[in-house]
């Protein structure tokens, strides 16, 4: 669990409550509500889960149970610069794993985590349709092609 206390924005909370209302505050809509909630906040901090529990009249433990069951849901906020490494077949055979390892080492985080300063987060995805550029890395909207482990340091420098 996250131990950092999160302050939610009033307009986001209002939007979340509106979403719950659109689903008639029905407990059976928990997964749909969580899906939309993650759309609003980008992730599902404990505070958001408490609001959902309250609005749908289910226990927080149950909400947390669902959040931890489905890998789509995350309680960790994405970094300011989300890094996605393509591990599709083409990128993989051209060394994506070594590139991924280099990012992990440079940032000192695992896949699915965010650096403590909130700057970078690391995730993997499957094929962005640019196999000619393999291995491919996306940072935010920007695409990097033919990335080698040696080049990782320079890429990260751009965001300092």
């Amino acid at each position: 669990m996250t131990s950092i206390k999160v302050k939610l924005k009033e307009k986001d909370v209002a939007q979340l409550k509106q979403v719950c209302k659109e689903f008639n505050n029905e407990a059976g809509e928990l997964i749909n509500v969580l899906h939309k909630a993650q759309g609003i906040f980008g992730y599902l901090p404990a505070e958001v889960q408490e609001i959902v529990a309250q609005e749908l009249n289910v226990s927080v433990a149950k909400v947390y149970g669902v959040v931890t069951f489905y890998s789509f849901f995350t309680m960790i906020p994405k970094g300011l610069h989300p890094i996605s490494i393509c591990t599709g077949t083409a990128c993989y055979v051209r060394g994506a794993e070594k590139v991924l390892d280099e990012f992990k080492q440079q940032l000192n985080i695992k896949v699915g985590e965010t650096t403590p300063d909130g700057k970078f987060s690391l995730s993997c995805l499957r094929c962005v349709g640019a196999c000619g550029l393999a291995p491919v890395v996306l940072i935010g909207e920007k695409t990097y092609g033919r990335v080698s482990p040696d080049g990782v340091k320079d890429i990260l420098k751009e965001y300092e």
Partner: peptide, 9 residues
């Protein structure tokens, strides 16, 4: 009371 739930998978 709603304290216990199965979590993770």
């Amino acid at each position: 009371v709603g304290v216990l739930s199965a979590i993770n998978r």
